[in-house]
């Protein structure tokens, strides 16, 4: 591990790749790495890109990246694709839309499969981002799965969220509307050379206005990613959003909230695991679960009984020594 961290600190991409692989597979070694204080930097600007399928997210991320790379920034890209629930396999196809990044030394791309996680990201995403941040990336772009519904996970990870849509996906926008206003800091109408682009912009404008006055009013951009058009303006607003976050104190606040959220979610999963282990060890509890399974006992009472029992046992252990 020392060797790995040593070469990691020397900015050796091979060691970064190896470390990410550990983290992706949530190995014991990866937990040791993530505990290190040098892995709590919080410096990178984390940009989430979400949107429905076919909106050209990957191409857009690729072009943004190319532009950012010319600004002498170090960039990490995390692309997420769905895992097949049947075979557990995944085809990770985002990278092919970013072929022109292959020769850029300051761009590092990691493709992740969701591995059963439903919120639009892989469950390891936050950890992956943490490692990329520790590697002193200036910008980390996260591309969500994009399967249609709103993918809220990205809100918990990113500082700036882009919602990408395309003309003609008006219906999709409507269905997204319920949660759309809360999700995005910047809207992008990609493939804006297609008919209906201006209407989409108008619709979005209306929706943004309806959502009430806010300190940061989400701008709406038209891009044609395949032709590099509108990218400069988009980058400009992403930078502006970062400045706004810093100025308003949100930059720090978001990070703090994120830290606490991560703590709580870890506590949650840890507890769940411990409770399950305990039930499996204690025959009387196991029997209760069996009864619920058969429908002979109700889950409301039983859940209270189990938790009460565990806490009581834990307290007696504490006080009784």
């Amino acid at each position: 591990m020392e060797d790995l961290i040593g070469s990691f600190e020397k900015k050796d991409n091979v060691s970064l790749g190896k470390m990410l692989k550990e983290v992706e597979n949530q190995t014991p070694l990866s937990l040791e790495i993530l505990k290190l204080s040098s892995f709590r930097k919080g410096k990178a600007h984390i940009i989430g890109v979400t949107g429905p399928p076919g909106s050209g997210k990957s191409t857009l991320v690729g072009k943004m990246c190319k532009k950012l790379a010319t600004m002498d920034l170090r960039i990490g890209v995390v692309c997420v694709d769905p895992t097949s629930p049947f075979t557990k396999g995944a085809l990770l196809g985002d990278r092919i839309r970013m072929q022109e990044l292959a020769k850029l030394p300051n761009v590092f791309i990691k493709s992740l499969a969701t591995r059963g996680n439903l919120g639009g990201l892989a469950s390891s995403t936050a950890d992956i981002v943490q490692v990329l941040d520790a590697y002193e990336m200036d910008v980390i772009l996260i591309e969500t799965v994009g399967v249609g519904q709103i993918e809220f996970d990205v809100l918990g990870v990113a500082d700036t969220v882009l919602l990408v849509s395309v003309p003609g996906l008006g219906d999709t926008l409507q269905t997204l509307k319920a949660g759309i206003m809360e999700i995005a800091d910047i809207y992008v109408i990609n493939q804006a050379d297609r008919p209906g682009a201006d209407e989409s912009v108008k619709d979005l404008n209306l929706m943004v206005k309806e959502s009430g006055k806010r300190e940061w009013s989400p701008p709406i951009h038209k891009t044609v990613a395949t032709q590099d058009s509108g990218i400069d303006e988009l980058i400009h607003d992403i930078t502006a959003h970062k400045k706004y976050l810093e100025r308003s104190g949100l930059w720090k606040e978001k990070r703090q909230t994120r830290n606490v959220t991560r703590l709580y979610s870890m506590i949650e999963s840890l507890l769940a695991q411990r409770v399950e282990d305990h039930i499996n060890r204690e025959e009387s509890l196991k029997a209760k679960v069996q009864d619920v399974m058969k429908g002979e006992r109700d889950p409301y009472t039983t859940s209270h009984e189990i938790v009460d029992r565990l806490i009581a046992k834990h307290n007696s252990y504490q006080y009784g020594g």
């Binding site: 196809g93 092919i96 839309r97 970013m98 072929q99 395949t226």
Partner: peptide
Amino acid sequence: GLWQFPLA
């Protein structure tokens, strides 16, 4: 300009 092959 160049075009990205839309494959997946």
